Amino acid sequence: MRPSPIPSRTAIAGHPIHPMLIHFPVAALLGLVASDIGFLMTGDTFWARASLWLAGVGSLCGWGAGLIGLIDLVSVAQIRRLIAAWSHALVAVMGLSVVTLNWLLRLDDMQSWVNPWGLSLSIFTAVLVSLAGILGGQLVYEHGVGVDTELDQ
């Protein structure tokens, strides 16, 4: 059975903005784990600097994408009724809080925080981002959030 579509309030020409924006922070936050491991394996400060930037970009872009998603969550009654929507939001905010802490810890000394706290926080963030992605997929594929099921003729 196909879910009836739940339109997004934050859309451009019918295309929801939140799913357009989340790819950048997700890529940055998953790349953060790799750059932390790169620094630990090589000791090259390039990887520590890359981690600092990836944490910052992931954090800032993630909060921006989250604000767009929040508009849909609070302004569309059909979305507000979904447990998966609230779970997605909660897990995403937890992940963004962890990566923001991770980024702020690295600002003064980008190298000393990588082992063990930086890498641990990066891995924890990657797990939370993955869980938020699963819940976001559930919103789209099971509940039809932001999906236009009508074909233009």
Rank of each mutant, 00 (worst) to 15 (best):
W63V: 11
S122E: 00
D148Y: 07
L151R: 15
D36F: 02
R49P: 00
H15M: 04
L119C: 02
I79R: 13
T45H: 14
G69A: 05
V129P: 05
H15Q: 13
V57G: 08
G38M: 01
A13Y: 05
A34V: 13
G137N: 09
F124Q: 06
W113Q: 09
G14M: 04
L54I: 07
M94G: 13
D108M: 06
V76Q: 04
W53P: 00
V33I: 01
G144M: 05
A77N: 11
A65R: 01
R106Q: 14
L52H: 04
F24A: 15
T42Y: 10
G146P: 04
S122L: 01
F46I: 00
M41F: 09
L29C: 08
H88T: 08
L101W: 14
E142R: 15
I17V: 15
M1E: 13
P16K: 09
I123K: 05
M41P: 00
G62Q: 08
L30I: 05
S120F: 12
L82K: 09
Q111V: 13
L119I: 10
M20T: 14
L21W: 00
I134N: 05
N102H: 14
W117H: 11
P116Q: 11
L128F: 12
G56V: 04
G62L: 02
L67R: 05
E150N: 11
A48N: 10
A92E: 07
F24T: 15
P25N: 06
A77W: 12
L30N: 00
W117R: 14
I6S: 06
I6L: 08
G43E: 07
L40E: 12
S59P: 09
I83N: 11
G146A: 01
A28L: 10
A89L: 06
G137V: 02
W86E: 01
G146H: 02
G43F: 09
L52N: 03
R49T: 14
H143S: 01
A126V: 10
W53R: 12
T125H: 10
W117Q: 13
L40G: 06
A84P: 05
Q111I: 10
A65C: 08
F124A: 15
G14A: 08
G136K: 03
L107I: 15
L70M: 14
H23W: 06
P19T: 09
L128Y: 09
S8F: 06
G136V: 03
S120W: 11
D44R: 11
V91H: 03
H18D: 10
V74M: 11
D152C: 01
S87I: 10
S130W: 06
Q78M: 04
L139W: 00
R9N: 12
D44S: 08
G144Q: 07
L135C: 10
V114G: 06
N115C: 03
G62S: 10
D44E: 12
S51E: 10
V129C: 06
V57T: 14
G69I: 03
T149I: 11
S4L: 10
F124E: 04
D108C: 05
L107C: 02
Y141H: 12
G38I: 03
T10S: 15
